[in-house]
Computed example of a mutant assay.
Amino acid sequence: MSNWADLTTGKRIKHLRGSDLTQQGLAEAAGVSLALVQKAEQDRGELSVGSLLKLANALKTDVAVILGQQAPRQGMSRDTRVALRRISDAVHEGALGDWDGLGEPSTLAELSTALDRMWATYWRGEYGELSELIAKVLLEGSARYEQATGYERERLGAVLASTYQSAASTAVLLGQRDLAFGAITSARRLAEQSGDPVRAALVESTLSWIHLRSARVPRAVAVAERAAAQIEPSFSKAPRPQLLAYGRLMIAAAVAASRRGDTASADEYLSQAQAAAARLGSDEVLYGTYFGPTTASTEAVGIAVALGNHGRALKLAAHTELPRSMLKIPRNRYKLDVALAQCEAKLYDRAADTLIEVGLDAPQWVKHQALPGVIGKRLAKVSTARVRNISELIGVPLIA
């Protein structure tokens, strides 16, 4: 097979479909029309993000693979394969209690420090170091958890829940949904045992995101709705952690609703998230989850883009200020939304500059995102040479 990035999108879809699945079968599995599949494989027209998600789910792969930014697993970079294997081994061995030869595990204080480093690394998008920290906390934390009692066992359970949550988020980002669902199952169990409803709610927000990445949009909405209903605050007197969790869940529901074109629901959920953010008053990170006024503002831009309202997205972006303290990954995810809106408004030079900013700021993370490929195809209509230069500069294949 030719270099994966050198194939067209249509050829990648055809290759992933293989000889065992007909075009009609793929259309039925993805819930799209046969005509859409035929046009996609013939590279006629552009696929929407929603269609890409549905096709990726039916083909049991990731959107980034279809777009050529990420090769099928056997073609992944060695560093990515190593990171995934490390996370997979830790998730399964931790759950099975297989830690022979581990030695004396770290103390609760040491594991808590490692957990903080783990989340900081996650939000920087550095997956090699992140996988090492996840493996350390899951294996050593699980070993100590089995022998612990009382307060120590309770705190270790919370540390492990958060680590499984991070493992799930990382796995789905790297296209490994089965591993993500396995990790989030362990996170849910431990979060429920912790007796902390806020922690349990934030785990559900990650589950909603996994469903969204898997093109299970109705389920993503339902999970976020259900968890939000269980923790819905009284805005006049709710504690800050409860406001943060509720707001994060409302964002998850709004984003998922926007992906299925449900403007009314997306606006309603977003309004609730904005109310929680306003009451919170500042951006905060709790249990590895980021939320506050900045989140509400930047996600509103992404929701407008998903709904096809690119003019509104750019107007919102013009009034959105990004604080210096904003975490790297949310900042760059927002910039990708802005770049796509700029493309749709034919502001191609600005879109190209925005894409370059993202690629240089978060080089590991951007390789596993779908939007750079979508933006690259839009920009290629104006200048394929410019897109190839951008690809070389940021190290991400954008067009065949």
Results as ranks from 00 to 15, higher is better:
346 K>E: 15
282 S>N: 07
281 G>N: 02
354 T>W: 10
348 Y>F: 14
312 R>G: 10
306 A>K: 14
270 L>N: 08
341 A>I: 06
280 L>W: 03
333 R>Y: 03
310 H>L: 03
350 R>F: 06
272 Q>H: 14
278 A>G: 07
297 S>K: 15
308 G>W: 09
277 A>K: 04
281 G>A: 03
278 A>K: 05
299 E>S: 01
325 S>D: 06
286 L>H: 06
324 R>I: 08
285 V>N: 03
315 K>A: 06
346 K>Y: 13
271 S>H: 06
291 F>Y: 01
303 I>H: 13
337 D>N: 14
344 E>N: 14
349 D>E: 14
359 G>N: 10
285 V>L: 01
290 Y>P: 01
341 A>F: 06
310 H>M: 05
290 Y>V: 15
305 V>P: 05
334 Y>D: 04
301 V>N: 05
272 Q>L: 03
306 A>M: 09
301 V>M: 10
281 G>C: 02
285 V>T: 08
349 D>T: 13
342 Q>V: 05
352 A>W: 10
348 Y>K: 07
342 Q>M: 09
307 L>G: 05
292 G>A: 09
306 A>T: 08
318 A>V: 13
286 L>A: 00
310 H>P: 02
360 L>A: 11
291 F>E: 03
297 S>T: 10
289 T>A: 07
273 A>H: 05
302 G>F: 02
357 E>N: 11
294 T>G: 00
341 A>L: 08
320 T>M: 00
344 E>A: 09
270 L>P: 11
291 F>I: 02
335 K>T: 13
328 K>Q: 04
303 I>N: 14
359 G>I: 11
335 K>S: 01
346 K>H: 14
321 E>M: 04
353 D>R: 12
297 S>A: 15
312 R>D: 11
315 K>R: 11
298 T>V: 15
310 H>G: 03
288 G>H: 02
343 C>L: 09
350 R>V: 15
356 I>T: 14
322 L>R: 12
361 D>G: 07
337 D>A: 11
286 L>C: 03
283 D>L: 00
300 A>S: 15
275 A>R: 01
287 Y>M: 05
276 A>G: 01
349 D>L: 10
339 A>W: 02
316 L>P: 03
347 L>A: 15
285 V>M: 01
308 G>M: 12
322 L>I: 15
314 L>M: 12
309 N>Q: 15
312 R>V: 07
310 H>E: 11
295 T>V: 11
352 A>V: 04
287 Y>S: 04
272 Q>D: 04
281 G>I: 00
294 T>R: 05
303 I>R: 09
317 A>E: 06
322 L>V: 14
322 L>Y: 03
304 A>N: 11
274 Q>K: 06
285 V>P: 00
279 R>G: 01
286 L>E: 00
278 A>H: 05
311 G>R: 13
282 S>H: 12
350 R>T: 15
271 S>R: 04
310 H>A: 07
288 G>M: 02
309 N>A: 14
317 A>Y: 01
361 D>Q: 09
283 D>C: 01
340 L>R: 07
345 A>F: 09
312 R>Y: 05
304 A>Y: 10
360 L>Q: 12
298 T>Q: 06
